[in-house]
Design a protein around this nucleic acid. Structure first.
Length: 153
DNA sequence: GCCAACGTTGGC
DNA sequence: GCCAACGTTGGC
């Protein structure tokens, strides 16, 4: 089983939204690196940190589970849709999504500022300057370390 | 709201 | 195939 981290803006879709709907297609990813991970690597049963970006306190806010591995992002086919992409025809889909299921909302946010301070996490794309990758793999050691940060004051 | 960093587009 | 211009991301 693999671990991941997935970013979303809470104003658009946050952990509370996921808790309410329980399962949600993670649509609208329009970056090839992230696409490849969803299409080729994410497996049902994998766990992912839910990360809030572009908000007052960016950070890790909970855990979700991959409920369905990669399949074409149908939003790309709908001209009315925000995520429509005419270059992604139905017979040759360019964009993919996975379904995610709510697992857990943390008692508190683990702020990006704290993640940046931990030498154990220095290799994560998340803490590297200028990195905009919205989906990234997390090693088991990084996963465990981030969870351990919850215990701290 | 600002702006640095990055990915994508499109002219050539 | 290069690279400047542009749009987007996302922290601050």
């Amino acid at each position: 089983m693999a671990y991941w981290l997935m970013k979303s803006e809470p104003d658009v879709f946050g952990i509370d939204d996921l808790e309410r709907v329980r399962v949600e297609p993670w649509e609208g990813v329009r970056n090839y690196q992230a696409r490849n991970m969803m299409r080729d690597e994410m497996q049902e049963g994998d766990l992912a940190f839910f990360y809030h970006s572009n908000c007052k306190v960016p950070g890790v806010v909970g855990i979700m589970r991959i409920a369905r591995s990669g399949y074409p992002d149908e939003a790309a086919w709908d001209p009315e849709h925000k995520y429509y992409d005419p270059k992604s025809p139905a017979d040759n889909p360019r964009w993919y999504r996975v379904d995610v299921a709510f697992e857990q909302k943390f008692e508190r946010v683990i702020p990006l500022a704290d993640l940046k301070q931990a030498p154990e996490l220095a290799d994560m794309p998340l803490v590297r300057r200028g990195n905009r990758l919205s989906i990234m793999p997390v090693s088991e050691a990084e996963w465990d370390f981030i969870l351990s940060m919850l215990e701290e004051a």
